[in-house]
């Protein structure tokens, strides 16, 4: 809901993402702060931001597939892996520039995702969601068993750093700008997708696929598209990951990683791009807190008592996710929206 006094007077203005001047100002400030971050905060924070932005790209893709189109996807880490491997192989064998490898990584992951999405023509409901787990196992099997000259097998692949006009993206801050640019494009694209014809088709299919079909939406194609877009995002995120870590191995893309991506969008809120970003932020922050305060706690508790504390940290993470789903099944974004609208319509209750 808009603040009072703001009325869209045309379809164009009704579709706007940035609706008021204050919103525009907040956005500019936020982006400006992020851009200046490498000059303001330490390398540790920049490294955390790098990891968050990469996760954000992948989680936003999952949000489109699961949150908007309603297709539970437990293969997002495998799709990310396909992207990471594509980028690594192209970069290390052909020396292609990252300007091409990143989109190509997205495309190859999209193709892999589309294959699973295609089964949507026949498979429905949970059956479809669960076939995405198969993607995870097949990816793992393929990497380890295809000739190791193809995908590196158990050796993994070492990735040369991204380079542009002789500038090597090695330091945290240079990688930050690479990730920032790609993440901005991808997130802006996501806003575009979800308010386009595709996005509305996604929501229609999620809410009721039979009704959507009657309204003239090609349900199977829409589901396949959802997987395609979700996987494209995962592939781009995977390519960024490859350029950040510069070593890819099949154990970086497991089912457990997929589950955590799902957890991120749950915490943030289903069906909201900003929600996906918030979910990434919260889960990564909790993980960083565990990693940061952990050793200090270990020092203060007696010997061998430490493992109990740390196991407790994992419970905290699981507990946060489970609690969110019980108390706030619609995610943090939902709560925020309620707060926002009650502020705007105050003093009226509705």
């Amino acid at each position: 809901m808009d603040p009072s006094g703001v009325f869209p007077t045309s379809y164009r203005s009704d579709r706007r993402i940035v609706r008021t001047r204050w919103q525009a100002l907040a956005l500019v400030l936020f982006m400006g702060l992020l851009l200046a971050a490498p000059y303001l905060v330490s390398g540790r924070i920049i490294a955390i931001l790098n990891m968050m932005m990469i996760s954000a790209v992948i989680a936003v893709g999952l949000q489109i597939c699961t949150g908007y189109a309603g297709q539970i996807n437990l293969g997002q880490a495998a799709f990310m892996g396909v992207g990471a491997y594509t980028a690594s192989i192209l970069a290390s064998k052909t020396g292609l520039t990252f300007l091409l490898t990143i989109p190509l990584a997205g495309l190859s992951a999209a193709l892999f995702g589309f294959l699973f999405g295609l089964t949507a023509a026949r498979i429905k409901g949970f059956y479809l969601a669960l076939t995405t787990i198969a993607a995870q196992f097949l990816f793992h099997f393929a990497v380890l068993n295809l000739p190791s000259t193809w995908l590196g097998g158990s050796n993994g692949i070492t990735v040369p750093p991204a380079e542009l006009f002789g500038l090597r993206f090695v330091s945290e801050s240079s990688q930050f700008y690479l990730n920032f640019a790609v993440t901005t494009i991808m997130v802006a694209g996501a806003f575009g997708i979800v308010r386009s014809r595709f996005g509305r088709a996604f929501v229609a299919v999620r809410d009721d696929d039979v009704a959507a079909g009657i309204m003239g939406i090609n349900v199977a194609a829409t589901k396949a598209n959802a997987f395609l877009i979700g996987a494209f995002y995962a592939g781009v995120g995977g390519a960024l990951w490859a350029y950040l870590i510069r070593f890819v191995g099949v154990d970086q893309f497991t089912l457990f990683h997929s589950i955590f991506f799902v957890a991120m969008i749950i915490v943030g809120g289903m069906g909201s791009i900003v929600g996906a970003l918030i979910g990434v932020f919260i889960i990564r922050i909790i993980q960083e807190i565990i990693a940061t305060v952990g050793p200090n706690i270990a020092d203060s508790v007696s010997f061998l008592g430490g493992d109990i504390v740390f196991a407790g940290m994992n419970v905290v993470l699981g507990g946060v996710i489970a609690l969110f789903m019980i108390l706030e099944p619609k995610g943090l974004m939902h709560r925020w929206n309620i707060l926002k609208s009650s502020y705007r319509i105050w003093p009226f209750p509705h």
Binding site: I72, F126, I259, F260, V262, A263, I266, M270, A311, G312, N314, V315, V316, L317, G318, G319, I321, A322, F324, M325, I326, P329
Partner: peptide, 14 residues
């Protein structure tokens, strides 16, 4: 169904 995903992580930790 999503709760069961959270349950997976929680039970492992517990």
């Amino acid at each position: 169904v999503m709760v069961t995903v959270g349950l997976l992580i929680l039970l492992r930790g517990l």
